[in-house]
């Protein structure tokens, strides 16, 4: 199987280790990955007002590039890229006028977009095309005894029309971590918004949410929290600094990206995870379980 891969901005910058871990894990699964050529930023958020076509241009251009790579499907490891690309795709598939206006605006593109590319988050591919059973079989270092709470946030599961799982009680991350040998921990805040981009203009809102979300996970026994969005990852990890200022008794919880847990269990070297880039160090807990 070969996947055309859209990295997005953050997996090429602060979260480069999430990409490296994901690519290594896919290699261990025997999946060929080809990075999309000349990709551009998708815009990170889907424009919600009816007349704002221009902001759908960036994601649709990414879909044109996918066609030019002779593929009719595109994979991303970022929940926000996934949401923006998939929603823009559904928007133009349902509105021929909007699609023709966008193609006109991009008249210098040699390829026209015709709604003929499907957008996938890597988690969907793991579940539906590779299968969690295969992943279980290829796991060489099971995450034995590691108690992992799965945090979904918003963009992977909402709105319902594009979400990859039940918007109120998703299970896909739990199924993945279980197949890697970990013990999934359920907790009530797994779909609660971390306040996303409010981290720029009001970090304290994010710190308050981080407190609620991580406290709940920890009280129910979680030793680490796994995420599938690099913005959630930044907020829940780096903002623990601000959380501790607001609540001095707050106990830190390490945050890992789902690709890092995969890389670990599938036998990639520890360097791929670049655990030194994390604000809250996941090494002590991983060491205590004999995983690194």
């Amino acid at each position: 199987m070969k996947l055309i891969y859209y990295p997005g901005c953050t997996l090429k910058n602060q979260a480069k280790n999430f990409e490296d871990a994901g690519l290594c894990a896919l290699d261990k699964l025997g999946i060929e990955v080809q990075e999309l050529e000349r990709w551009n930023c998708c815009g990170t958020v889907f424009s919600l007002v009816t007349d704002d076509l221009i902001h759908h241009l960036a994601p649709v251009r990414v879909l044109i590039r996918t066609k030019e790579a002779k593929s009719n499907s595109l994979m991303t490891m970022c929940a926000m890229c996934f949401n923006t690309l998939k929603r823009a795709n559904e928007r133009v598939r349902a509105d021929a006028d909007a699609l023709s206006t966008l193609n006109d605006l991009m008249y210098e593109e040699e390829t026209k977009y015709e709604g003929d590319v499907d957008v996938y988050h890597l988690l969907e591919i793991l579940k539906d095309k590779i299968g969690f059973e295969t992943i279980r079989q290829k796991t060489v270092k099971p995450l034995q005894d590691l108690k992992v709470a799965s945090y979904y946030g918003c963009y992977l599961i909402r709105p319902r029309e594009i979400g990859i799982d039940d918007p109120e009680n998703p299970q896909i991350l739990e199924d993945l971590t279980a197949s890697l040998g970990a013990t999934p921990i359920d907790f009530p805040y797994k779909t609660e918004c971390c306040a996303a981009y409010k981290t720029v203009d009001n970090p304290n809102i994010v710190a308050e949410r981080t407190y609620q979300i991580l406290n709940s996970a920890r009280q129910l026994g979680a030793e680490v929290v796994v995420v599938s969005c690099p913005l959630c990852a930044f907020n829940l990890d780096a903002r623990q600094k601000e959380t501790s200022k607001l609540y001095p008794e707050f106990q830190h919880v390490p945050i890992l990206y789902f690709t890092q847990l995969m890389a670990l269990a599938l036998g990639c070297s520890e360097e791929k995870l670049r655990l030194d880039l994390h604000y809250i160090d996941p090494k002590p807990i991983l060491k205590s379980k004999g995983l690194i």
């Binding site: 953050t10 926000m80 981009y197 780096a238």
Partner: peptide, 25 residues
């Protein structure tokens, strides 16, 4: 969000995904 008020530290610390989405919104 007046962009000129963003300190260089904030611009370096927060990932592009946060900056771009807050600019968009």
């Amino acid at each position: 969000l007046p962009l000129e008020n963003l300190s260089p530290e904030v611009k370096c610390q927060v990932p592009p995904i946060a900056l771009i989405s807050s600019f968009r919104k």
